[in-house]
Amino acid sequence: MSPEPVSDVPADDIVLSGTDLVKGFKGFYAVDGVSLQVRRGSIHALIGPNGAGKTTLFNLLTKFLTPTSGQIRFDGRDITGLKPAEVARLGVVRSFQISAVFDRLTVLQNLRVALQRKAGDGFRFWETENRMRRFDDEAEALMEEVGLEGFAHTPAAALPYGRKRALELASTLAVDPKVLLLDEPMAGMAHEDIDRIADLIRHVAQSRTVLMVEHNLSVVASLSDRITVLARGKVLAEGDYASVSQDPQVVGAYMGEGLHA
């Protein structure tokens, strides 16, 4: 089966898209002519073997890397030339594979910093920290949502791994993104945490679009509306889980790993 054509989707339905994206590093192409269209309100998964170019594609879509060629559009607007902070300000917000939190700040301070961003820039060096207390109710709600109650005053560095990921997700949600790009949100999590985060992703996707890289295929199967399979920097297959998992090329690429959730 070849990648399913997506050109029949009305342009309005596409919130984020990449067209013919290429990213070359010295001597090889990490992403080699990838086109991807993410539909508004969907959960779109990006899977593929290690080194397939998933994270590089994430970096391109959020402009942490500049594509060698190709175009990126968000909400019909060309964002190929924007800086990463500007892309984030438009509402395309990413998480990182290695849990990215502000280590020396407490959980509450981490969330306050994220909420401050949504409220506007914070150049006021003459105001006291108390000014940030206006975010505390919202921060409290976010902590509850991801299961960080009681950790408000714990430095982020002291959190166990699973809770760090939860904090990262909470601060991503804090800036109220239109599109969330989650880079392996379940990596390194215990089983009961996976269910909880999966529920949370399903919940936040009701009003947003989610594009995620994930290795846990049972999560991918149960969560995603659409799956793109990457291998060696190219799109191998695209479709829903049923069709993608039957694709002989995909099965081949995953040799032995098996696609049976």
Binding site: F125, R131, V175
Partner: peptide, 22 residues
């Protein structure tokens, strides 16, 4: 200050601060 908190956030993890839109 709120500004100082953001500075410390940038010190701890600049890419993360950028990805929040700073």
């Amino acid at each position: 200050s709120p500004f100082g908190q953001i500075l410390q956030a940038i010190r701890d993890n600049e890419p993360r601060a950028i990805s929040l839109g700073y």
